[in-house]
C-alpha cells in the first residue's frame, strides 16, 4: 500500500465523496422539514389526509430505496416526468427519508403530555404559539437519537445512487479497485465513510448536549 498509489487515487475518491456529501446534505435539508410537515399531517382531523399520508409512508418504507431510485429515474419518464440523474437521486432520497422522519416525529408528538397543550391554552396562547414555543422544542429534543440513526444510515445509503449511474464514493473506489486489481481503494473508501459518520456522530452529540439544559 504505497503512499504514491494512495495519492494517485485519492483525488477520484474525494470527488466521489463530494457527491456523497452533496446527496447527504440536500436530503437532510429537504427531508427533515418535509418529515415534520407529514408528521403534523398525520395528526390532521381530516381522515383522507391521514389515509393519504399513511399510504405514502407505507409505500416509502415498504419498498427498497434502490427500487425507488430506479423507478424515479427509469420509470417516471414513461409518464413524461423526466429527471436528470442527480435531481432524480435527490427526489428519491428526500421522499424516502421524509417518510422515516415523519414516523419518528409522530412518535415525538405522541410523547408530549396533553397537559402541555392545556397549560398553554389556559394562558391564552394560540395553537400555533403552543406548537412553536412549547411543543416543537420538546419534540426536537426527544427525537434527536432516532433521527441520528437515520442520518448515519443516510451516509451509507447514498452509495445506492450507483444504480442510476452517479459517481459517488463507493463507485469511485470500485472503479479503482477493478482497474488496478487491488483492495486498497475499497479500504480507503471504508476509512472515508468512517470519517463522514464520525463528523455526523460528533454533530449529533453536540446537538444533544445543546438540548441537555432541561429534562
Amino acid at each position: 500500500m504505497s503512499l504514491t498509489y494512495i495519492s494517485e487515487i485519492l483525488p477520484s475518491l474525494l470527488s466521489g465523496a463530494w457527491m456523497t456529501i452533496r446527496i447527504f446534505f440536500w436530503t437532510i435539508v429537504g427531508a427533515l422539514p418535509l418529515g415534520v410537515l407529514v408528521s403534523m399531517g398525520l395528526r390532521s382531523r381530516w381522515q383522507p389526509v391521514r389515509a393519504a399520508l399513511n399510504f405514502y409512508i407505507w409505500l416509502m418504507r415498504g419498498t427498497p430505496l434502490l427500487l425507488q431510485l430506479m423507478f424515479v429515474f427509469y420509470g417516471l419518464p414513461d409518464i413524461h416526468i423526466v429527471f436528470a440523474r442527480y435531481p432524480a437521486a435527490l427526489v428519491a432520497f428526500i421522499f424516502n427519508y421524509a417518510a422515516y422522519f415523519a414516523e419518528i416525529f409522530r412518535g415525538g408528538f405522541t410523547g408530549i403530555n396533553q397537559g402541555q397543550y392545556e397549560g398553554a391554552r389556559v394562558l391564552g396562547l394560540t395553537y400555533g404559539q403552543t406548537l412553536r414555543r412549547i411543543v416543537l422544542p420538546q419534540v426536537v429534543k426527544s427525537v434527536i437519537p432516532a433521527v441520528g440513526n437515520e442520518v448515519i444510515n443516510l451516509v451509507k445509503d447514498s452509495s445506492l445512487v450507483y444504480v442510476i449511474g452517479l459517481g459517488d464514493l463507493l463507485r469511485a473506489g470500485n472503479v479503482a479497485a477493478a482497474r488496478d486489481v487491488t483492495l486498497v481503494p475499497l479500504l480507503l473508501v471504508g476509512v472515508i465513510y468512517l470519517l463522514l459518520t464520525l463528523v455526523c456522530t460528533y454533530g449529533l452529540r453536540s446537538l444533544e448536549r445543546h438540548y441537555s439544559y432541561y429534562r
Partner: peptide, 15 residues
Amino acid sequence: RKIGVVFQDFNLFPN
C-alpha cells in the same frame, strides 16, 4: 382571558 388555572401536576413547560 379571565380564568387562570393551577393544574394538579402544574404542567410547567420543561424547556
